[in-house]
Amino acid sequence: MEEEKEAVMVTPGEVLGRTSDVKAGRGAYAALHNDTVYASLTGFRRTLPPAPDSSDQYIICNLQRPTIEVTGHKAHGPVPQPGSVVIARVTKVMARTASADIMCVGSKSVREKFSGIISIYDSYFDDRQQDVRATEIDKVEMHLCFHPGDIVRAHVLSLGDARAYFLSTAKNELGVVSAESIAVCASMLYILCLGATMVPVSWTEMQCPLTGQIEQRKVAKAAS
């Protein structure tokens, strides 16, 4: 089947084909009781040629089935999935964990709030290093890796528990990408964190450009 020149609009429940001829892609579903593929969204029908390396279990006469999909006009916000790289803002740092609000998934910003948790073992060591430095695990402290307000790049380990996604920064290119220093305005009655954006100086340190003070962070290696 060739790519259709003219886009056909469909509504939910419309028959798109037989399961023996086509596969149901996004916006479509296959009903097993009568072997029919139906649309599940309102939008345009598109026929995608079969992937050359797909292992189709219903191959009949060596003919691979094209995938049929329906693209709707509503774009849903991105949702973090295991394996995706996210940008998150640290909200709370505890002894062994840090909480963060996920702001971007890949390059797309999220529409609603997703919270994540970075555990100390997931923050500092990747598996290899963890083995090497197993005796020094206790030396690492969460507040030497992150501070509230830091922007981190993290990897989604799993969907986590009911509360939060489990995140990891245990890779060179993961960790704090932007942080503000705790430069203090002394003239005020209250201690006020003015905060200047710090410059990374090593993979564990960042420096304040105003005061020259060095702070500890788990710094992400900048993408070259």
């Binding site: 509504t11 939910p12 429940g13 916006g27 579903y29 139906y38 599940s40 969204l41 309102t42 709707g72 006009h73 509503k74 849903h76």
Partner: peptide
């Protein structure tokens, strides 16, 4: 629901 783009079996 159809406007919201929620997948449905049928209308």
């Amino acid at each position: 629901l159809a406007d919201a783009g929620i997948p449905m079996r049928d209308l």
